[in-house]
Computed example of a mutant assay.
Amino acid sequence: HINTLGNAKVRQDYHDALVNYFTPFKDQLSDDSKRRLEKNPLRILDSKDEQDKQFLPGAPRIIDYLDEESKANFDQILEMLDQLDINYVIDNDLVRGLDYYTGVIFEFMVEDKSIWESASTILGGGRYDNLVKEFDGPATPAVGFGIGEERLMLVLQKQNPALFADQGIDFFITNIGQETQIKVVEIARLLRKNGLKAQYDVDQKKLKAQFKKADRANAKFVITLGAKELSDGVLNVKRLADGQTFRFSFGDLENMNAVMKQLKE
């Protein structure tokens, strides 16, 4: 969903038009919208109050107040979206009441009624040309957006449940002795850097309890690191599927492709 707020003059003209439109209905507006009418009438258009909704369909549309420059800019953006095969809806009800917004504004909406009864926004943003200046910085053209992370996760969970299936982890690193703690972190970082899922016991519980954690995490392999392994520069790796154990040097981990190939044979 996309719209534009135009430039400062467009916004002021639209502000005045909204005031002229809503003023005759002032006594029938909600208390919040009465306050907004004095300070920021654009925010009335976002109202969810039933008292206000009856007046919204007849409210002026900002697209009717665009000057030539603002309209040309908006048309250029729409043309680019068309050329890139990006679907969009010109939404005249889409506005922003915050002063730092300028020009184009947009929202990504989910219209799947199996998830929500009505369309729901999961991402919204636009041009922020006045934002840096409002924080005492230099005038800086900008664009940005905010995501409703929880909503996005709900959508993903509904539309692609396989993403949320518990597939376990690749490695659980068990360790014994305070002197091994740093090495455990180094190994975990190295494994993760190679795109592998790795965990270790930050609570430093007894070895038996750590193996139970590995089982609960559905780990494929368990690395055991103690004082002797640290001294010898080796790692014992157990494949939990069949109990087979492997022995690698610390240096072997620099070639994780070869290590993983051997572990999976």
Rank of each mutant, 00 (worst) to 15 (best):
L45M: 14
G124H: 06
A162V: 11
F74C: 08
L225G: 03
R216T: 07
N20H: 10
L156P: 00
K206M: 10
M256W: 02
A59Y: 12
E50R: 05
S114F: 03
K53H: 03
Q244N: 14
L163S: 04
D170P: 05
Y88Q: 10
R36M: 09
Q244H: 14
A198H: 01
T245F: 00
I105P: 05
S118K: 09
V143R: 04
V143N: 06
I176S: 13
N3E: 14
L263D: 07
L18R: 01
L235Y: 14
G125R: 11
E111K: 13
K183A: 01
Y101L: 01
E179T: 14
Q199C: 00
D166Q: 13
R192Y: 11
D242S: 06
A198G: 00
A241H: 07
K228C: 06
V143C: 10
K212E: 05
D46Q: 11
I77E: 13
G195E: 02
R189P: 00
I122K: 05
P41I: 10
Q167L: 10
S118P: 00
Y21H: 06
V259S: 03
A214I: 11
F172I: 09
T224E: 15
G226F: 11
N87M: 03
W116N: 00
I105L: 07
M109N: 02
F145G: 02
V234F: 06
V237I: 15
A241N: 08
G226W: 11
L94P: 03
Q159L: 10
A72L: 12
V222M: 03
V202R: 06
E38W: 01
D129C: 05
L263H: 06
L225R: 07
L45W: 07
V143G: 08
S70N: 08
L156C: 09
V104W: 07
D112H: 10
L18D: 04
G144C: 09
K71R: 15
W116M: 01
T224F: 08
L156E: 01
E50M: 04
G243H: 04
I182M: 13
M109W: 01
T180E: 03
K208C: 01
R96T: 02
D67Q: 08
R189K: 14
K183E: 05
L5V: 03
A17Q: 11
G195K: 04
Q54H: 05
F145V: 01
I86M: 11
G226N: 13
V237M: 08
A241V: 10
I105R: 06
I223N: 00
K34D: 10
Y88W: 09
N257G: 13
N87C: 01
